[in-house]
Write a protein that binds this DNA or RNA. Sequence first.
DNA 1: TAGATTGTTAATCGATTAACAATC
DNA 2: TAGATTGTTAATCGATTAACAATC
Lengths: 203, 203
Amino acid sequence: MSISSQTMRRLPVYLDYLKQLPRDTARISATAIASALELGDVQVRKDLASVSGAGKPRTGYDTAGLIQTLEDCLGCGEKRQAVIVGAGKLGRALLDYQGFETYGLSIEAAFDQSPDAVGVTDAGKRILPMAALEAFVQTHPIRIGILTVPADQAQQVCSRMCDCGIRAIWSFAPRRLHVPEGVLVQYENMAASLAVLSSHLAG
Amino acid sequence: MSISSQTMRRLPVYLDYLKQLPRDTARISATAIASALELGDVQVRKDLASVSGAGKPRTGYDTAGLIQTLEDCLGCGEKRQAVIVGAGKLGRALLDYQGFETYGLSIEAAFDQSPDAVGVTDAGKRILPMAALEAFVQTHPIRIGILTVPADQAQQVCSRMCDCGIRAIWSFAPRRLHVPEGVLVQYENMAASLAVLSSHLAG
DNA sequence: TAGATTGTTAATCGATTAACAATC
DNA sequence: TAGATTGTTAATCGATTAACAATC
């Protein structure tokens, strides 16, 4: 039974909520989670059922157990290695951001075509020249590529990533990408969010 | 007739695509747009119909006219002013990013509780102390607040934003926010995208 | 036992897709 | 005219919500 992508997107929201609860919260009900997160209680129960199945009538879920289950499901325990291509402001911000480690993502290095960008960041992460991309990816267990290059270079860099074996691409570039069968592209479309905000202000 | 939020999110995607076409592309069909963006042609036609209605059978849409219509609809012409609270790496990256100007968003200043953060960025944008937030928002036409503080400060900062008249909040903090009636919160949930990527690699 | 909660089955809702008439 | 394309109406699909039996 595969988990729908809508459910998958809510799992880290539940996990964040559970982790910020007081330490002594031994049990928690779907009803309580739903009310805190402003979601439907049936939706929460259904989402949790799709990964856990350990809820008990009357008492709810064991908090620690549920956190463990969600972490397992999101792969927080594993270390999934990624590289970033495009060491502009956004690329460097993501590179130095610690928060993704919580979810098992470790960004190993960034690459940039500009010789000026090459070096080491404040957090001690390496920025390497573009020419080093293929060798680096092939000598490390890199499976995720993060794209923070300008739109007009996105397809070209994406193709290079796919060619050296990257299986999942997280793209911040506003451009639809063409990838081989089996490679997943996840678009982080900031302009889309902005459009929704704007239409609220206008309407 | 109000535009659905799914459609609204696709409008900037269409706009980006149209703007990168060769200058001499006088007309374009929904079929062509759909095939380039890997969407359904009926979906594109329906989205465009909801804002334009200027498509002509056999010839398609006037490219320049469609760009203009989309820009109007997304408010690219207006200047919507925003502030950022939280001048960490992500906050500063967004502050200095030029790309949002294209969509009519102008980030006027950032605010941070740490005295060390206060100053001026590379791009010449001001970072001010938190105490200056209310006065700044009330003396400028700020309607959008961008939240890039840690999760545990998000609600408190969000409330201050709402209190001084901000009507739309774009939050990068992994925390559900409670806002008064009429204020829109748009969550940019990076962990959710990461979860989808991870499940692809695992599954 | 009574009551709160889970998990499942059925109904609803919204968005996408298919079918087709209208038009240039 | 013939053919490509638009825009609309109906059908489908997926996700959310409501109703309810099961359980501790």
